[in-house]
């Protein structure tokens, strides 16, 4: 069995006095796609934001590649190869496409390597190359999602946290995004995928967790969750 890349133990996060995460534990192994499902407000984004260091947890631990990263600032966590693509893409809309990509490799000082990675991203998303001098805010939703993914790839991630990459994207483009995620994984990137679109997520994930009001209520192999009666009823529109 492959090694554990991310291990979360009893993580608790509060917004003021309100508990958003009530002690969740999960694990992602090298090379896997793991999904975190749940309805709106279940705490999925909070989980990712706590893991990537944007929010400090009240209790619990996060280990990345064996190292305790629980109280590291977000910019230090990025240096270790844990890259978080936030919900809603968060493109820098007044910066050009190339500038957005360059910032993705901010921690990388080597200019040549930066250029090489941008070349790779352009190879993967030719539309970004075509639009490289355009401001990020002028791209369509699907293009912005490609830019967000490309910007994440600029950091050469060991683990990619993806928060609802299908949100606000035309259904036809969702299929493209799904293929991109699958391809990234096949090329060796480990992915923790948060989704409301359970159909998409379970089609990709080898393993899944279901989050409900801050607690993990169900977990198992992707294929098993897909046929679980509760999951079908709650998230797959059965």
């Amino acid at each position: 069995m492959s090694s554990t890349i991310l291990k979360v133990e009893n993580l608790e996060t509060y917004y003021g006095k309100v508990a958003a995460l009530k002690g969740i534990s999960l694990e992602v192994r090298q090379g896997q796609v793991v999904t975190l499902l749940g309805s709106n407000g279940a705490g999925k984004s909070t989980a990712l934001r706590t893991i990537s260091g944007l929010i400090s947890p009240a209790a619990g631990k996060v280990f990345f590649c064996g190292e305790d990263i629980t109280n590291l600032p977000a910019h230090e966590i990025v240096k270790r190869g844990l890259i978080h693509l936030p919900e809603g893409r968060h493109i820098f809309k007044d910066l050009t496409v190339s500038e957005n990509l360059e910032l993705g490799a901010y921690t990388l000082k080597d200019k040549h390597e930066r250029r090489r990675r941008m070349h790779d991203v352009f190879g993967r998303f030719p539309i970004l190359q075509k639009r490289r001098h355009q401001l990020g805010g002028t791209l369509s939703g699907g293009e912005q999602q490609m830019l967000a993914i490309g910007r994440g790839l600029m950091a050469a991630p060991k683990l990619l946290l993806m928060d609802e990459p299908s949100m606000g994207i035309a259904p036809l483009i969702v299929r493209d995004i799904t293929n991109i995620v699958r391809q990234l994984n096949e090329e060796g990137t480990t992915i923790l995928l948060v989704e409301q679109n359970a159909n998409m997520a379970l089609g990709l994930a080898g393993y899944g967790y279901v989050l409900d009001t801050g607690s993990i209520v169900l977990q198992g192999e992707g294929a098993r969750l897909r046929h679980d009666e509760k999951v079908v009823r709650a998230y797959l529109g059965g």
């Binding site: 977000a74 910019h75 990025v78 820098f92 921690t107």
Partner: peptide, 22 residues
């Protein structure tokens, strides 16, 4: 690089943190 980071911070601080910007 730093100039771009300044412009990006003016737009979206949290996302800058996720880019590894201090």
């Amino acid at each position: 690089r730093t100039g771009k980071a300044m412009r990006a911070i003016a737009l979206d601080q949290d996302t800058c943190r996720l880019m590894g910007i201090n």
